[in-house]
């Protein structure tokens, strides 16, 4: 089993910034493991702008922000193993990975988890109906359009008014789709005001606050959704129901930190947020296993992911060389 100083799992914004932080605190031997063949993680599908205003003092798109970090990591000479999937880690800081044609076993002085988060799905919010095709988590639809070039349907309704849902409303309009409505159960949107303005109002897409989708109709393919008004305790208000015809439903109802590796290694996970329990900054309940970025807590801005993950990387480097008490 090969011994390494620092192993980082994930080459999204958190993993890349953590690697630079570790390097700057003196780590000599850093390896980043990434399952994709590109660096930058989910930033690559976030083709809209608005990234980097704090970190780079200019407005960048997601891929541009990713490219800057990928370039910095490459010029720092940090080793990357791409197309490599971390299957298991242990509390002895062993890492088991699969890569094409090979099973890799490593042991690290410190591990940094930078595995990001995943989307909450339709199944996590109660909606009646069958399971027709045409229902997508918003981030998956984003990947379909921006990475694969597939158009998910013709007429869409978006459930939830988080930023990903808002951004996708505009994106689908740009690709020639109709966006019939955004349905938000809360009395206020969780999304940024500027996204409501430039993604919905610019295209006269109605935003229904204090409303919920009660049923998705259609057996093979989505045919329509039923929507109704809700009161302060989210109970349906009688006689307010109406239908919206559509063939596509995007679900944008939040993100959950991805912590299966840590959980299987015996690390403590907060059941409410799915974040790791950290008693020391960025350090999980297993000594020497660190966590940063969206798998630590879900962030609104990538700029803060970079800032915090850089710090986490530095702490992991100090731990690895025995400076962190």
């Amino acid at each position: 089993m090969k011994e390494r100083e620092i192993v980082i799992i994930g080459a999204g914004p958190a993993g890349l910034a953590a690697a630079l932080g570790a390097k700057d605190k003196g780590a000599k031997d850093i390896l980043i493991i990434e399952r994709d063949q590109y660096l930058g993680g989910i930033l690559n599908q976030c083709i809209h702008n608005g990234f980097g205003l704090h970190r780079f003092k200019e407005e960048l798109t997601g891929p541009e922000y990713a490219q800057r970090y990928a370039d910095m990591v490459k010029s720092a000479g940090i080793e990357i193993s791409d197309r490599t999937f971390a299957v298991k880690i242990t509390n002895k800081k062993e890492i088991f990975c699969l890569k094409p044609g090979e099973m890799m076993k490593l042991k690290a002085k410190a591990i940094i988890l930078a595995t990001g988060c995943r989307e909450r799905t339709r199944e996590m919010i109660p909606i009646h109906g069958f399971r027709p095709s045409g229902v997508y988590p918003a981030g998956l639809a984003q990947k379909m359009i921006n990475i694969e070039g597939w158009i998910p349907g013709e007429e869409a309704v978006i459930i939830g008014s988080g930023d990903i849902g808002l951004i996708m409303a505009r994106r689908m309009i740009f690709e020639g789709m109709k966006v019939k409505a955004v349905i938000e159960i809360m009395p206020k949107s969780r999304g940024l005001r500027r996204n409501i303005r430039q993604c919905l109002e610019d295209f006269s897409i109605p935003l229904y606050l204090s409303h919920k989708v009660t049923k998705i109709h259609g057996k093979e393919r989505v045919e329509k959704v039923s929507v109704c008004k809700v009161d302060e305790s989210f109970k349906e208000i009688k006689d307010t129901s109406f239908d919206i015809k559509c063939d596509t439903v995007l679900v944008s109802v939040g993100l959950i930190p991805e912590n299966e590796l840590l959980e299987a290694a015996g690390g403590l996970i907060d059941k409410k947020t799915n974040s790791p329990v950290c008693l020391k900054p960025y350090q999980t309940s297993i000594e020497g296993i660190f966590s940063c970025g969206n798998c630590n807590k879900v962030y609104d801005l990538v700029d803060w992911v970079s800032r915090d993950s850089y710090e986490a990387g530095g702490l992991a480097a100090m731990y690895a060389n025995g400076e962190l008490k």
Binding site: Y38, N44, I47, H48, N49, T61, G62, P63, E64, I145, N146, I147, E148, G149, F174, Q198, D202
Partner: peptide
């Protein structure tokens, strides 16, 4: 005015190039 961000088709290893 608005900045446009979208993708254009490629023949390369990455099928769609993000542009602004």
């Amino acid at each position: 005015k608005r900045v446009i961000t979208t993708c254009v088709k490629t023949d390369l290893s990455v099928k769609w190039l993000p542009v602004k």
